[in-house]
Nucleic acid binder design. Structure first.
Lengths: 237, 237
DNA sequence: CGCCATATTTGACGCAGTGCAAATAAGGCC
DNA sequence: GGCCTTATTTGCACTGCGTCAAATATGGCG
């Protein structure tokens, strides 16, 4: 791989050109089609990855069969780094769109980390961020009701992959109701009911596997205002 | 601090004696009384910590005022490392018993990381473990009912701080019903009801802020068997 | 363009778990 | 030992949201 490809990514910003070159030349390219996994739960942990373009989701299947989305991978982010502890992948990485990846055999990656201290620091940085993000979501899961969790999840999608458009902000990759549910720890059905309600109120729009937020401030209000929202389950008499 | 104090801790196992000495001499000792914070939510992130003895809990207060336990710190574990991203602490670290700590000013810690690549690798290791642990709990929160979450939380407490005793395994630090609730994302009341039920069944024992598990296999069954447990909310007629 | 598989929506229903209020227990301290 | 604070337990009414079942939309593809 050309070293130039690494330079624009913040994960490597602090490294010298020479170091980046060393890292880049050790990698192999890989292309994953939309819907396909870069790796799957249970696979042996043989490689480290960097997303060059596209988007992936990290998903995990609970013993009950339910699916949970642990996070997303944006272009420029390394992933599948969990190479110190686990011999097998604890989660799958599924491409949401065709994604170009750089791949390193784990042994090589370890060598690189030993030779380039700055690389380890970068990895550190990323792990820390992932940990803080998950802590955030964990607290939300523990304390907030479903509609608020959904609102926050959508807001997070916006600043991860929101593209401004004529009538709102569009999430740049496909998001199904099922994904929303897997992201917020609820069911497909509840997620649907909630989004339908907001659609009727004009806060969001979008059909099959697409999400367009028309009124971001309203969504923020729904997420944070303790008074906001009468849940979509209709008053019981 | 004496360098000998560092050697038994796995976080530093891969470092040379000389490196450990460098790290140790840069630290200051600190003692935190039971119930007191090593640092609190919102504090500026000025220091890194290592627990030498005792136990701490990492807690976070949600906007609603609810409290969530993000994790525990055992003797030998570094903590409060989130120094790359956050200028203010996202969580508090509260001592569950009197705890001895080693403390480094953050600037010094950064220097140490630069000089000792192996230290950064250790930190990496720890962050990775924390991340995987939290992912685990996240999935549980998303997929399991409250009694099962409580069972799993107690099991996790056992292999973190369980001491074998004549009639069971005791958790080595104080755990209130409130703590159990904060650990599993439920209410004090539900946690109490569940534990009372298990107490009557002879699975656990213990009063005020103590937990003694008398029948670990039964608890494992309650946690994992999909058939197990009729929830403590008593059949309604 | 029409068919088919896949997504989404919707309704009815019930229960796990919460909220509130209050009783009860258990230590710790003087 | 008795008092006071803090933790735990408990009853009851209520509801958020999961479950089940089914109708309906939608886009891709031949």
């Amino acid at each position: 791989m050309n070293m130039a490809m690494l330079s624009p990514f913040p994960a490597f910003a602090t490294l010298s050109a020479q170091e980046r070159k060393l890292i880049a030349t050790a990698s192999s390219p890989k292309i994953v089609a939309a819907g396909q996994p870069a790796f799957s739960e249970g696979d042996p942990t043989n490689h480290c990855f960097l997303s060059l373009s596209g988007h992936l989701k990290l998903v995990r299947t609970a013993s009950s069969g339910e699916i949970v989305i642990l996070g997303f991978v944006d272009p420029g982010e390394p992933f599948g780094l969990g190479v110190t502890h686990e011999i097998r992948r604890p989660a799958s990485a599924i491409a949401l769109r065709e994604s170009k990846l750089a791949v390193w055999p784990i042994a090589i990656w370890r060598e690189l980390q030993n030779e380039i201290p700055g690389l380890t620091l970068s990895v550190n940085h990323i792990l820390e961020k992932r940990l803080f993000d998950l802590q955030e979501r964990f607290v939300e899961m523990a304390c907030l009701d479903v509609p608020r969790r959904v609102a926050l999840a959508v807001l997070r999608l916006i600043d991860r992959a929101g593209r401004r458009e004529a009538d709102g902000v569009r999430i740049a990759f496909p998001v199904s109701r099922h994904d929303v549910a897997a992201l917020t720890g609820t069911t497909l059905h509840s997620a649907s009911r909630i989004l339908v309600r907001w659609k009727r109120q004009g806060v969001i729009a979008g059909g099959r596997r697409t999400l367009l937020v028309r009124d971001v401030p309203a969504l923020i209000r729904l997420a944070t205002d303790p008074e906001a929202d009468v849940s979509p389950w209709g008053q019981r008499r």
